[in-house]
Simulated scan of single mutants.
Amino acid sequence: MFILSLTYLKCNDEADGQMEPHMAWVKGGYAKGWFLASGRKVPRTGGVILAIGERAAIEAYIAADPFTIHGIAEYEITELAVTTVVEGLEILKR
């Protein structure tokens, strides 16, 4: 599993200007079966996506995010080897 942590490099107004295409990109990650959960950081300094899949494919997909293309946010990718989950979240162990 991967924790994709986005940190805004530009102000929230600039992020808002790319939010619609970014959210279309996020929905694409869900459609591919890679994204499991996502949301904004509190306070709003970026966001977090929980993802599964092959690292190289995830990295290539991140490069196509409008937030990346327009320099709105940078990503930190943390790989997590999940060993224990509550019932129903076994997908996280992939």
Rank of each mutant, 00 (worst) to 15 (best):
A60F: 01
V48R: 08
F67I: 05
R44W: 06
S38H: 06
K41S: 09
K41H: 07
F67M: 01
G71N: 11
A63E: 12
P66K: 04
I58E: 02
M23A: 11
A60Y: 04
E54Q: 13
A31S: 15
F67H: 07
G39M: 02
F35R: 12
R44K: 09
A51T: 14
A64E: 09
G46N: 04
A73S: 07
I72E: 01
V48L: 08
L50V: 13
A56R: 13
R55I: 09
D65I: 02
A37T: 11
I58T: 10
K27C: 07
V48I: 14
A60V: 06
T45A: 11
H22P: 00
I62E: 04
A31R: 15
V26I: 10
T45M: 11
G33W: 08
I52H: 12
T45P: 12
S38V: 03
G33N: 07
S38C: 05
G71K: 05
Y61N: 11
E20A: 01
I62Y: 00
V42K: 14
G33Y: 06
A64N: 06
G53C: 12
R40N: 08
A37V: 11
P43C: 01
A37S: 14
M23S: 10
V26G: 07
M23P: 04
P21S: 01
Y61E: 13
P43N: 04
